[in-house]
């Protein structure tokens, strides 16, 4: 009775893991097309990825665009989040709805909109155009994470700071900001990844000049299964593994080094927006809800 559901659970876990792992050996394969198991191993396609401008340029474009999206998103979302979380005012519900709406839009719908609208503004095929579109798409995630953190923020800390003589500005700078720093960091990271992974809108609006990595990958997969894709996939997967494991490793290292440390603040604050999952692994994964794809 206990065994069967357990077994099914383990099989499902294997179903989730297998495809993730298969791209790794593929990236070292000598085969020019999809073939598994690989007939031989080499690093030729890694060399190809790092030297071929048709791959490095989209990678740089994606990094630049993701970074720009992150900055613009945080700049816009931070004051808005304080307004929505900290104040009760007429139209708050509408503001809330507006900030989360882009999340509920199928990306293909927005892709058409941006294709024609940014085209009118002569912003298609530019970095700025993609950054603008990606910022609109990143706002909900960044807002949700930041507002969850802000809601969990103890207002008494600010009251205490003020009673101790800190002006509102210094209170924000010396107390609110440092305590919320992990929340800001996670929020920004999500905005970055949201942009870095976004495919559909980029497919329609990023021209040759601002081609993003996902667009390049999509087209390579569609046209001919370029073996370099498995290299990019492996590198992207490795980056995910690194980011996901980082808090775990950090925690383990901290435990060994000393029993105290300011980073515990980070962990607690990150845990505040919890929702699901063992919070030390990935506190806010489900907020990455997007009808992208």
């Amino acid at each position: 009775m206990r065994l069967l559901p357990r077994l099914i659970g383990i099989l499902v876990a294997a179903f989730i893991a297998a495809p993730l792992l298969i791209v790794v050996p593929m990236s070292f394969s000598t085969a020019p097309s999809l073939e598994f198991p690989p007939p031989g191993y080499w690093l030729g396609y890694y060399a190809a990825y790092f030297t071929d401008e048709r791959w490095t340029q989209p990678t740089v474009n994606s990094l630049v665009i993701a970074f720009g999206t992150m900055l613009l998103t945080m700049l816009l979302v931070t004051p808005a989040t304080f307004a929505v979380v900290r104040h009760r005012f007429l139209g708050r519900g509408i503001a809330n709805l507006m900030l989360t709406m882009p999340m509920a839009m199928p990306h293909i719908v927005l892709a058409i909109g941006y294709y024609s609208y940014l085209g009118d503004l002569r912003l298609t095929q530019t970095h700025a155009g993609v950054i603008i579109a990606h910022t609109a798409l990143s706002v909900p995630v960044a807002f949700l994470i930041l507002s969850a953190n802000l809601k969990g923020f103890d207002r008494n800390l600010e009251r205490a700071a003020m009673s101790l003589g800190a002006t509102p500005l210094r209170t924000f700078w010396h107390v609110t900001l440092p305590v919320l720093r992990p929340g800001f960091a996670i929020s920004a990271l999500f905005a970055f990844i949201q942009s870095f992974d976004e495919t559909v809108v980029a497919l329609f609006i990023s021209g040759r000049e601002s081609e993003t990595l996902p667009r390049k990958m999509f087209e390579s997969i569609r046209v001919q299964a370029d073996p370099v894709i498995s290299v990019v996939s492996t590198l992207l997967f490795a980056a995910v593994v690194l980011v996901v494991l980082m808090p775990v490793l950090w925690k383990a290292a901290r435990k060994r080094r000393s029993p105290t440390g300011p980073s515990a603040v980070a962990r607690d604050a990150a845990g505040a927006n919890a929702g699901t999952a063992p919070s030390d692994i990935n506190p806010c994964a489900p907020s990455r809800v997007q009808l992208e794809a």
Partner: peptide, 9 residues
């Protein structure tokens, strides 16, 4: 989580 974060592509 790893699967979740890995690009759709």
């Amino acid at each position: 989580t790893m699967s979740f974060w890995t690009s759709f592509l």
